[in-house]
C-alpha cells in the first residue's frame, strides 16, 4: 500500500499505511473524508438552493399574496421548531466535543438528546401539517383551488420545501442512531472520529436549511 498510501497529512507529508499489502482498504484520511462530506453538503445546498431560487422568483411575481399565505402559518409552531433544531445542533456539536475528550458516555447521552429533538421537531411538524390538512389546505384540495394563484404557489412551495426538509431530518436522525451504535460497538473512537463528525455536519446542514425556511415562510406575513 506504500504507493497510494501517499496521503499527505495536515503538514503535507505522506502517512505510512496501517495495512500494508491490502490494496482495497484505503488508509484513514480524516481530512479527505471531511472534504468529501463538505463537497456532498454543497450538492445538498444547491438542491435546496434551487427551491430557494424558485421561492425568490415567485415572491417577486406574487409578493403580497405570499404575505397572505404566510399569515396562515403558525409563528409559534415554527419558532418552537427553530428552537428545537438549534438545540439539537448544539447537542450534536457537544456530542462530538465529548468524543474528542474520550467521554463516550456523555457523548451517547447528547446524541440521545439530539434524536429526541429530531423526533420532537417531526411531531410539531406533523401537527402543523395535520392542522393545514384539517382546514382542507393541501395540494389538489378544493379549498386550495379557490385561493389566489399567489397563495396556491406559496402553499405548494411550503409543502414541498418543508417536506424535503422533514425528509432530511428523518435521514439525519437515522444517521445519528447508526453512528451511536458504532460508538457503542467501539467502531467510532476518539482516534477514528471522522464518521461521527460527518454525520454531525449533515445534521448541522439540516439546521442551516431550517434557519432560512423559518423566516421565509413564517415571518413575511
Amino acid at each position: 500500500m506504500s504507493g497510494s498510501a501517499a496521503i499527505p497529512d495536515d503538514a503535507g507529508h505522506p502517512v505510512p499505511d496501517a495495512h500494508p499489502g491490502h490494496h482495497d482498504i484505503m488508509p484513514y484520511d480524516p481530512v479527505g473524508a471531511r472534504m468529501g462530506m463538505w463537497l456532498f453538503l454543497l450538492t445538498e445546498l444547491l438542491l435546496f438552493g434551487a427551491m430557494f431560487i424558485a421561492f425568490c422568483m415567485y415572491y417577486i411575481q406574487h409578493g403580497w399574496r405570499f404575505s397572505l399565505g404566510s399569515q396562515e402559518l403558525s409563528t409559534a409552531m415554527g419558532g418552537a421548531n427553530t428552537l428545537v433544531l438549534l438545540t439539537s445542533s448544539l447537542t450534536m456539536a457537544l456530542a462530538i466535543a465529548a468524543m474528542q475528550r474520550r467521554n463516550t458516555r456523555l457523548s451517547q447521552q447528547l446524541m440521545n438528546a439530539t434524536i429526541v429533538c429530531a423526533v420532537g421537531f417531526l411531531v410539531v411538524k406533523a401537527f402543523e401539517w395535520g392542522g393545514k390538512f384539517a382546514h382542507g389546505l393541501y395540494p389538489t384540495s378544493d379549498h386550495m383551488a379557490e385561493l389566489s394563484q399567489g397563495e396556491q404557489i406559496f402553499y405548494s412551495l411550503y409543502f414541498v420545501m418543508t417536506g424535503f426538509h422533514a425528509l432530511h431530518v428523518i435521514i439525519g436522525g437515522v444517521l445519528i442512531l447508526w453512528v451511536k451504535r458504532r460508538v457503542t460497538k467501539g467502531l467510532v473512537t476518539t482516534d477514528r472520529l471522522v464518521m461521527m463528525e460527518n454525520v454531525g455536519l449533515y445534521w448541522h446542514l439540516v439546521d442551516l436549511v431550517w434557519i432560512f425556511l423559518f423566516p421565509l415562510f413564517y415571518l413575511i406575513g
Partner: peptide
C-alpha cells in the same frame, strides 16, 4: 501517482 481514487 496514486493507486486509486480517494473513495474507491
Amino acid at each position: 501517482g496514486a493507486n486509486d481514487v480517494l473513495f474507491p
